[in-house]
């Protein structure tokens, strides 16, 4: 069966800077796939290119069999793929309820939206408690829950997450990662970018390691967890230095 999401020879450039240089990756239905790598390895740029927030300079992205590279983010989200951006990016001046309502802006079936909303409030009871509060006043962990809840309001088949652990207390990170596993059990497919490689490999089925804009290594999470090279790669050493 064809993968749900695939990128072939993906390139991203910002002027002279080549942030992503020929990435190939695939995510199959029902998987959690981790994309690991040091700061500046090109992970975020890859995610941005997948959801259309930056236009790939070269390469093709397919989602559910259709070519989506070059399409607008708005269209891609409507097709069932969305991103929880790095740093959460809840709308701070909007209330929790308003943030969630916007998450479902692309959906027409109101009854289905009501059901999704009930499910999300069950997953994140804190969001029900803080419903009328401005999102900017929530704690970091609560904002991350809201950002994920808001993304789920669009009823995605594939959820991309960029550094969900960033700036959160270890206990909160554990909760978020437990939640991702539960979402997978409910049938959601997940592609997660993480600097905390150990935590990500714990929940992932497979992983890719990015170095200098390219995929340096890939394989089942269990294998990569045992690999010393991964430690080097995600700590920031280039593969060349690792071999030296």
């Amino acid at each position: 069966m064809a993968p749900m999401l695939s990128a072939t020879d993906l390139h991203v450039r910002y002027g002279a800077i080549r942030a992503v240089r020929g990435v190939d990756l695939a995510v199959s239905e029902g998987e959690i796939v981790a994309l690991l790598g040091a700061n500046g390895a090109g992970k975020t740029s890859t995610l941005m290119a997948l959801v259309g927030l930056v236009r790939p300079a070269q390469g093709e992205v397919r989602f559910g069999g259709e070519v989506i590279s070059g399409r607008d983010t708005e269209d891609i989200v409507t097709r069932g793929m969305t991103l929880v951006p790095e740093g959460r990016h809840v709308f701070p001046s909007l209330t929790v309820a308003e943030n969630l309502r916007l998450g479902a802006a692309s959906r027409r079936d109101r009854e289905a939206v009501v059901r999704t909303r009930a499910e999300i409030l069950e997953l994140f009871p804190i969001l029900a408690e803080r419903s009328g509060q401005a999102a900017g006043t929530l704690s970091g962990g609560q904002q991350q829950q809201l950002a994920i809840g808001r993304a789920l309001m669009s009823a995605p088949r594939l959820l991309l997450l960029d550094e969900p652990s960033l700036g959160l207390a270890p206990q909160v990170v554990d909760d978020i990662f437990d939640l991702l596993v539960r979402l997978k059990q409910r049938g959601l497919t997940i592609l997660i970018v993480e600097q905390d490689a150990v935590a990500a490999l714990d929940i992932a089925d497979r992983a890719y390691v990015m170095v200098n804009g390219a995929i340096a290594m890939q394989g089942p999470a269990a294998e990569l967890r045992a690999s010393e090279q991964v430690a080097h790669a995600y700590l920031g050493a280039t593969m060349a230095e690792t071999h030296a």
């Binding site: 983010t73 969305t82 991103l83």
Partner: peptide, 19 residues
């Protein structure tokens, strides 16, 4: 709501599927 959201963060508003 989308207008207020766009004032907060334009790109993330597009991630909500809003044109």
């Amino acid at each position: 709501l989308a207008m207020r959201a766009a004032a907060d963060d334009f790109n993330v508003t597009r991630l909500m599927g809003i044109r």
